[in-house]
Amino acid sequence: MTTPSTADLPRVIDTVASWQRDGAPVQVHPGDLGWYQRFGAEALAGALREWARDGETVAVGFLDESELIRMAIAPEAGGDEGIAHHVADDFVEALGELLPPGRAIVEARFGTALQQVLTDRGWGADDPWTPLHRDLAQPVPPSTLRIEVVGPGLVQERVRVEVAAFPGSSFSVDRWRQMADGHAYRHAACLLGYDEQGVAVAATTVWSAGRDRPGVIEPLGVHGGHRGRGHGRAMTLAAAGQMRRMGCSSARVATPSSNTAAVATYQAAGFVTPGEVTDFCRP
């Protein structure tokens, strides 16, 4: 297991992008890494771990929160028991400096071997999440909001809506710029949605992993003072439409199942779910 440098970030992001597949369970996406880069390139590099075999990266771990490691595994390595045991051993030993004592969670939604190893070692189920996706082969209905792609002149507005949508958010103009300077943002776009009065009421960032691969919404929010008016559905349709124009094969998102309003919003915008999933919680 190794920790990449900031110079390695483009390679790691491109590798994770190459692993994205329609029909496979959701795993860490370049957009997840790109959104985290709002904290800076050094912070992102410090939150990543790589596992390699014969000089080729086969798994990437992403410390998305203080107690959560999210995994991405090469499609051809998903059933490899040797890799799974190696990764699981590192969770216990080498990652001790990252995961605090007590509660620790591993998001391993792809990779049957790692899932089985964690189960055999007593890792239990954490709270359920609902992954959703929308196929982008056909055109997406237009949004009822006026949509603008965020450039330098709209960054403050983008930040204002984000903070109003997510109380306690630490998003800022400087953090948007750090995100936008990142390698993953070359294949991304921030969108603002305006109502009939010309007020910015919703915002999102959408991320591509390359043409004919699934894209991801990370994040999407409606200003707290403008909810209950269908803006969430409208912004979700705008996000899906933007990803289709970017060449994505499908649009993906995941939300805690307890957030029933978010699940209903995505479903109202034509997203479907294969069912709930759970992460692994350390015994």
Rank of each mutant, 00 (worst) to 15 (best):
residue 152 P to K: 12
residue 68 L to D: 12
residue 232 G to Y: 02
residue 218 E to W: 09
residue 14 D to N: 13
residue 70 R to C: 05
residue 243 M to N: 05
residue 274 P to S: 04
residue 196 E to A: 15
residue 49 R to S: 11
residue 131 P to D: 12
residue 282 R to H: 11
residue 67 E to T: 15
residue 169 S to I: 06
residue 77 A to H: 14
residue 211 R to W: 13
residue 164 A to S: 15
residue 144 T to S: 04
residue 207 W to Y: 15
residue 207 W to L: 13
residue 218 E to L: 05
residue 101 P to S: 10
residue 277 V to S: 03
residue 114 L to M: 04
residue 215 G to S: 07
residue 110 F to P: 00
residue 78 G to Q: 10
residue 86 H to Q: 11
residue 279 D to T: 03
residue 15 T to N: 05
residue 161 V to D: 02
residue 132 L to C: 11
residue 134 R to Q: 14
residue 281 C to G: 02
residue 77 A to P: 01
residue 113 A to N: 07
residue 270 G to F: 01
residue 101 P to F: 06
residue 48 L to N: 06
residue 248 C to Y: 09
residue 140 V to Q: 02
residue 241 G to T: 06
residue 277 V to A: 06
residue 204 T to I: 07
residue 193 G to E: 05
residue 22 D to V: 11
residue 113 A to C: 05
residue 175 R to Y: 03
residue 137 A to H: 14
residue 142 P to L: 01
residue 250 S to I: 09
residue 207 W to K: 10
residue 98 L to Q: 14
residue 249 S to I: 03
residue 26 V to F: 15
residue 260 T to Y: 03
residue 250 S to K: 12
residue 34 G to K: 08
residue 96 G to C: 03
residue 166 F to Q: 05
residue 100 P to G: 13
residue 129 W to S: 13
residue 191 L to C: 04
residue 260 T to E: 13
residue 52 A to Y: 05
residue 257 S to H: 14
residue 190 C to G: 10
residue 130 T to F: 04
residue 208 S to W: 11
residue 250 S to Q: 13
residue 235 M to N: 04
residue 27 Q to K: 08
residue 171 F to W: 12
residue 32 D to Y: 09
residue 217 I to V: 15
residue 170 S to T: 06
residue 109 R to N: 12
residue 252 R to Y: 02
residue 131 P to H: 13
residue 48 L to F: 10
residue 32 D to C: 07
residue 238 A to Q: 02
residue 25 P to M: 06
residue 175 R to N: 08
residue 261 A to P: 02
residue 202 A to W: 08
residue 226 H to Q: 11
residue 177 R to V: 08
residue 72 A to Q: 02
residue 271 F to N: 07
residue 262 A to S: 15
residue 242 Q to M: 11
residue 12 V to H: 12
residue 171 F to S: 12
residue 104 A to C: 15
residue 212 D to Q: 13
residue 171 F to K: 06
residue 50 E to H: 07
residue 121 R to L: 07
residue 30 P to Q: 11
residue 78 G to K: 10
residue 198 G to N: 11
residue 36 Y to W: 07
residue 180 A to D: 09
residue 186 R to L: 12
residue 9 L to Y: 11
residue 164 A to Q: 15
residue 207 W to G: 11
residue 27 Q to L: 08
residue 223 H to R: 08
residue 239 A to I: 00
residue 80 D to I: 10
residue 233 R to W: 00
residue 139 P to E: 03
residue 26 V to L: 15
residue 238 A to W: 01
residue 236 T to L: 09
residue 193 G to K: 00
residue 184 A to T: 07
residue 105 I to Y: 09
residue 30 P to T: 15
residue 222 V to L: 07
residue 74 A to Q: 06
residue 104 A to M: 06
residue 178 Q to N: 10
residue 140 V to P: 01
residue 18 S to V: 03
residue 44 L to P: 09
residue 8 D to Q: 10
residue 135 D to S: 15
residue 162 E to A: 04
residue 91 F to M: 13
residue 168 G to P: 07
residue 238 A to L: 08
residue 79 G to S: 15
residue 102 G to Y: 08
residue 120 D to Q: 12
residue 118 L to C: 01
residue 243 M to G: 04
residue 73 I to N: 02
residue 234 A to Y: 02
residue 189 A to P: 04
residue 36 Y to R: 08
residue 193 G to F: 02
residue 105 I to R: 13
residue 5 S to A: 09
